[in-house]
């Protein structure tokens, strides 16, 4: 699966572990939330990066105490029409102050790239290679935005609101 970070296709250094697979000492790993929460104490001693794959039906606020220990948060779109992870992403960025990498996984399609970026994702894992290749074209076709989010892009309402939210600041 291709991974796009800050507009470029990059190699994914995080490895997803199977449920019964022991956490290796080396290398970045991505763990499902349930396992991560169960093993959170033990993982604190791990030198290599740990990421968590947070499901879209679990309150994102629960992740707050663990953020300092995390190197990646991945949020899941089981189907592109299920938009819960957009709210989770904005809360992570704008409420919980997460500045690290935020990845969209699952049914990630080009027609939602811009929404995802605006919600605060900076890593996208597109389902289709052709979509990944169309990233620049897709994002380039959106130059104006009506409403402010925490993504820092200028928006017409924000221009009218006459103030700019500092990146990562509340709402």
């Amino acid at each position: 699966m291709p991974l796009i970070e800050n507009g470029r296709i990059v190699e994914d250094r995080f490895r997803r572990l199977a449920d019964d697979e022991a956490v290796p000492a080396e290398g970045a790993v991505l763990l499902p939330a349930e396992r991560f929460l169960k093993e959170a104490e033990a993982l604190k001693g791990r030198a290599a990066p740990v990421g968590v794959l947070w499901p879209n039906n679990r309150r994102i606020e629960e992740i707050a105490p663990h953020l300092p220990a995390l190197a990646l948060v991945a949020l899941h779109f089981p189907i592109f029409r299920d938009g819960r992870a957009y709210s989770q992403a904005r809360l992570l960025r704008e409420r919980l102050g997460w500045r690290g990498p935020l990845r969209a996984t699952g049914n990630v399609l080009r027609d939602q790239f811009v929404f995802m970026l605006r919600a605060g994702f900076d890593q996208l894992e597109p389902s289709k290679a052709t979509d990944a290749a169309a990233f620049a074209e897709e994002v380039g076709s959106h130059s104006v935005f009506y409403q402010p989010t925490g993504d820092g892009r200028p928006s017409i309402l924000r221009a009218r609101l006459g103030r700019v939210a500092p990146a990562g600041a509340a709402g």
Partner: peptide
């Protein structure tokens, strides 16, 4: 209208 047009968080309710 301005607020809700192409809203990134609320287009897949």
């Amino acid at each position: 209208r301005q607020y809700s047009t192409a809203h990134p968080e609320f287009s897949y309710l």
